[in-house]
Design a protein around this nucleic acid. Structure first.
Lengths: 208, 208
DNA sequence: TTAAATGTAGCACATATGTTCTATTTTTGC
DNA sequence: GCAAAAATAGAACATATGTGCTACATTTAA
């Protein structure tokens, strides 16, 4: 997103949002109205500039034939919010909420997993879930949730240690058990106040 | 794809192929030419019919605003060619080559795995690769290949047993070793002639 | 067989839409 | 401050494109 003035950023954003809503690109005049631009020729001027800079491509004389380049768009991508500790602790930013597609990593979801909102992804570091067939560098797809049932695999934020960890969740009366799936590691028994559940694992993707 | 005559199937196919090639929908006249239809009104007529039957949607008076419904399109899908035996043998069809999206199962690939041609998918049955973190009902993404190097995880067709199997490949002089990743099972040592390598594992997808 | 339903043809029309042109204004670089 | 470059305006133009209309052909159903 470098080398772009506000107007051009607006145009790109508008095209992307329009595409998300309608599945096709807007016409020049729709861009004009949507971005409060005074003339179609100004839109044309900026589209040519954006094309020259490599942000989009368009076919001449063809209606609605603007295509954002792959780097420009953020379709179907879900953010890899932070690496997750599944062994050694890892510092993460607990209040990371926004997703900047330019600087943040992401994965593209296979559609049979996706179609669900509030999904995010975590890249696993460590081997504490090896018996659950999840290992280092796997990407786990999470569904946001602030609660869990016994036996569910969850990502939990531990304020005291300032780490996010992937474990099985058990609630035994007054203590929360976070159980790894690796005999090398022991369960954590914590006060419920010490555990912030971030989400449940709904899928795993591994690139070998 | 029921309730459709040849012309309408053609139109749907053309729209999909056009979309794959250009990223946008074709105009009425492009459909006309692409499907050898004699009049734009015939295209219009059939598009209305297809819309009524639920195969697509379009916005009125908007250029290139045809959208195939999700069931109608086959974007990004790769076929699950057959279940793979990773324990008990499973009968499969060794010369299955074509992919009929209507009747055959498929997976949608996450883009960071995809973009490579000749990929296909296999659904794992059994637990013989459990130590490689691949288990029952996982979907392995395969890249077609008729050869392999030592230690690579491959799918091999065993003509003698008429089964496809997922194993690690080792070549020890004159015998091919197909090694499971589960102490419960033993390696197969076979004559090279008895092993047809179908592809190498490039990814794993699991829906939990 | 016959009437209704369905599909085809060809053309015309309205407008949606990309492009171009010239003039003017604003910004930039020196 | 001044010339060049960049950006804006507004309109006109050409054509790309969806739709409508009438006539005709083919298929279906009774």
């Amino acid at each position: 997103m470098i080398n772009l003035n506000e107007k051009q950023k607006n145009i790109l954003k508008f095209i992307e949002n329009y595409y998300i809503e309608y599945g096709i690109s807007p016409s020049i005049r729709e861009i004009q109205n949507g971005c409060n631009i005074t003339s179609t020729s100004v839109v044309d001027y900026n589209l040519k500039s954006l094309q020259k800079k490599g942000y989009l491509n368009k076919r001449s004389d063809i209606s609605r034939a603007i295509k954002l380049n792959k780097d420009t768009q953020s379709n179907n991508k879900i953010p890899i919010l932070s690496n997750i500790a599944a062994g050694e602790p890892l510092m993460v930013n607990p209040d990371q909420t926004s997703f900047n597609e330019d600087t943040d990593p992401y994965v593209e979801l296979p559609n049979h997993i996706s179609s669900d909102p509030d999904l995010f992804a975590l890249k696993v570091k460590g081997d504490s879930m090896i018996d659950a067939l999840i290992t280092n560098d796997d990407i786990v797809i999470m569904k946001s949730s602030n609660n869990a049932s016994d036996g569910e695999m969850i990502a939990a934020w531990l304020p005291k240690d300032e780490e996010t960890t992937l474990k099985r969740f058990y609630f035994t009366g007054d203590k929360v058990e976070l159980r790894p799936e690796n005999p090398k590691y022991d369960s954590l028994f914590l006060d419920p106040k010490e555990v912030v559940i971030k989400g449940k694992v709904v899928g795993v993707i591994r690139k070998v």
